[in-house]
Nucleic acid binder design. Structure first.
Length: 348
DNA sequence: AAAACGTGGAC
DNA sequence: TGTCCAAGTTT
């Protein structure tokens, strides 16, 4: 008799799962932390960050009591920085509004900052064994291939379709194992390219494998468009201190520190830069203009030029958001990658 | 509903 | 070199 989808999957998982620090614990704090870190992030990239956070903040209370800049600094380099801000806010809310205990149901978890449908299902199942299916990139892929589902996974309404398919499959009494297993299969066997079907416990009845459609599934129609941005950073130094400001909302690197800048959608010549600075600021002397530094992001091509300036009068900076920091203080600040690279190479 | 949000690895 | 995309969420 043929074994069920869930049984084959869970049996495979029990024999082939990777040993990861957030597994074999039912502590909601650790599971929540790992899930936030792993959003759109590979295990190898997130692992050191998970260890740093657990080390620095062993409990949700420790995290809640930490200064925000310190949390941002620990997150530095991981990307998607709103996750770090939401993580901190969520920790404070757990302590202040939930008496330090994470809620135990999908619907309650959904109310937390930074916790969406996937993460709520993950915590509900891993920590509390509630039978709610996780639907992430792995689940889309495994189910789309196994059942040959051709709906566009970039469309929000497609989520419901996959959620319902998974809901039919998930065993009430083994929710955690099922969810872990299907994601593990997607991450290690049913990969986007060159899936290892020869090692797949579900290969027998996989529609995509039978019809050689693995490379066509899942269907994802969203196309990426690259944006070019040219950043001209203005570097003010005063008596061993450097002017930096915290980046605002609705853009990359929210909550991180960088320099005052002039932005353009096309490359500016040296003459253009000098002219702009002369009209925008008074009593400024340009000391040096660096070569362009390229910074590749997935949806953006950034090119930065660092313009070192000297003010010829006092108090040239009347922007209150701009503050002077010593070299030591700058090391304590969370900085965008580009700035970090610049500071390291210049050794200011 | 579509777009924005990062970084690093793979091909 | 360009493209995809990974344990998604928010607006």
């Amino acid at each position: 008799m043929t074994q069920s989808f869930a049984n084959l999957l869970i049996n495979w998982y029990n024999n082939h799962q990777r040993d990861l620090p957030w597994r074999n614990t039912s502590a909601p704090y650790k599971i929540w932390l790992s899930e936030i870190i792993l959003q759109q992030t590979r295990v190898n990239q997130g692992l050191p960050y998970y260890n740093k956070f657990i080390n620095e903040y062993p409990s949700v209370h420790d995290l809640a009591n930490a200064p925000e800049d310190e949390v941002m600094r620990l997150w530095q380099g991981l990307g998607y920085y709103s996750r770090a801000r939401n993580l901190h806010e969520c920790a404070k809310s757990i302590v202040n509004q939930y008496d330090g205990e994470f809620p135990s149901t999908y619907n309650e978890l959904l109310k937390l900052k930074g916790v969406g449908k996937y993460t709520a299902a993950a915590i509900a199942s891993f920590a509390f064994n509630q039978a709610v299916p996780v639907v992430d990139g792995n689940v889309f892929r495994v189910l789309a291939r196994y059942f040959c589902v051709t709906d566009d996974i970039a469309q929000p309404k497609t989520f419901t379709k996959f959620f319902n398919i998974a809901k039919e499959l998930i065993p009430e009494e083994q929710a955690a194992s099922f969810n872990q297993a299907i994601m593990e299969l997607g991450a290690t066997i049913c990969t986007p390219k060159k899936p290892a079907c020869e090692n797949c416990p579900l290969a027998q009845d996989c529609e995509a494998r039978i019809h050689h459609k693995q490379s066509e599934l899942p269907v994802k129609k969203k196309k990426i468009k690259i944006k070019h941005r040219y950043l001209y950073y203005l570097i003010w130094q005063e008596g061993g201190k450097l002017a930096m400001k915290k980046r605002g909302e609705s853009d990359i690197w929210q909550g991180l520190f960088d320099f005052e800048l002039i932005e353009s959608d096309k490359a500016l010549s040296t003459e253009d830069i000098i002219y702009k600075i002369d009209t925008l600021y008074k009593d400024i002397e340009i000391v040096e203009i660096s070569e362009p530094v390229k910074h590749i992001l997935s949806h953006q091509r950034l090119e930065a030029v660092f313009v070192e300036l000297k003010s010829t009068t006092e108090n040239i900076l009347n922007d209150n958001s701009l503050k002077y920091y010593t070299k030591q203080q700058i090391e304590e600040l969370p900085k965008p990658r580009l700035i970090e690279n610049y500071l390291t190479s210049k050794n200011i």
